[in-house]
Design a binder for these strands. Structure first.
Lengths: 190, 190
DNA sequence: AGATTAGCGGAGGGAACCCTCCGCATCAAG
DNA sequence: CTTGATGCGGAGGGTTCCCTCCGCTAATCT
């Protein structure tokens, strides 16, 4: 997958010197990456070692703690994002930015696939969600009738966007508020 | 906390009849709620029982599986959201909607505090993030200089919003795209 | 080719957690 | 108050995963 990753200044990943060791290191990183994304961050380290085709001892030698492995995966993904920024820089201004934003966005998406926990398929979840929508939709309809909301916007879209924006991490409440307002601006008629 | 929750049609929560049993049930629900939010969904069930001041057997009698407990907590939170919608309905159209949106938003926020995993405080994380920002900011600056981006918008805000929006769950890619575009609309000059 | 040394793997002890089971306590109905 | 029924608690067996340790393998160097 790596589109020729770009190293991050200030971060040194300790990749082994010997050829076989380096192969194992790379295999572990690849296995960990897909395991974390597909199974969640609590995946058994023994599973990762097995997927990579190495012994558990080898895993621990390269990544003494789970956190070390997690960070290594994270770093490798960031490095690919840096490369994407470099590759985009010869396009038109807005297009370049948008292209990169989309790349960034897909990175966040897999990162968050780790949210497998509450299986969204359950009947219970379905019922609750529709109850909530029913409760909210009169409010939405009223605001729309009053001409406050863009015609082409649906309640469902707004809720998804808001929950996404809210789920993010922010430096402080002021920033959270700025971003929230920004998102609302997209919904409201001006 | 409950501001007189509203029951959800189609969902029945099995609350015990005997007085002491009901006390235990409620204590378990409250303990589970804060435990899930603060410790994450993998919290040891024994901890929840202890926090609630009951034996582990009592927990399992009321909630045979972890999923049952998780769902019960979820349901109680939704019920409070329904009550909030009811309480907001006598305000002005936009205000009513916005008030409820903010309540909804805070619900999502706690729900996602379960993202404790990668501790955002680490030095590693700080360095990586700033590297990424450095890579992106020339793209952003160029687009802004070209008059494509609103003056009052900062790169950091955009990234937060986008990552939030992207982190959300969607029915399909079409909806994901709609919401993404909606969010971008807030950034771009028209 | 032989010597050196880094790297390999997986057995196994330990820790954390899950969940059942049953003797005891407490409630509520008569 | 008595009595049956309901609920309580936590000991303990089972499972899963963590992580170290060391005899063996194989890569690199000369």
């Amino acid at each position: 997958m790596p589109d020729t990753a770009l190293p991050i200044p200030g971060i040194t990943v300790h990749r082994p010197h010997r050829a076989d060791a380096r192969r194992n290191f790379d295999a572990l990183l690849a296995a960990a990456r897909s395991a974390f994304n597909e199974e969640g961050i609590d995946v058994a380290l023994e599973d990762i070692a097995r997927d990579a085709g190495v012994g558990i001892g080898t895993l621990y030698r390269n990544f003494p703690t789970r956190q070390d492995l997690l960070e290594a995966v994270y770093i490798s993904e960031i490095e690919e994002l840096l490369a994407a920024a470099r590759d985009a820089s010869d396009r038109e201004p807005w297009e370049a930015f948008e292209v990169w934003l989309r790349r960034f966005s897909s990175y966040v998406a897999t990162k968050l696939a780790m949210l497998q926990a509450l299986n969204k398929e359950s009947e219970m979840f379905r019922v609750c969600r529709s109850a909530m929508y029913e409760a909210a939709s009169p409010l939405f309809a009223r605001a729309k009738d009053a001409g406050e909301i863009r015609d082409d916007v649906q309640l469902d879209d707004v809720l998804r966007m808001v929950s996404g924006v809210t789920a993010g991490h922010y430096d402080d409440d002021a920033q959270r508020e700025r971003v929230f307002t920004l998102a609302l601006d997209a919904v409201r008629v001006r």
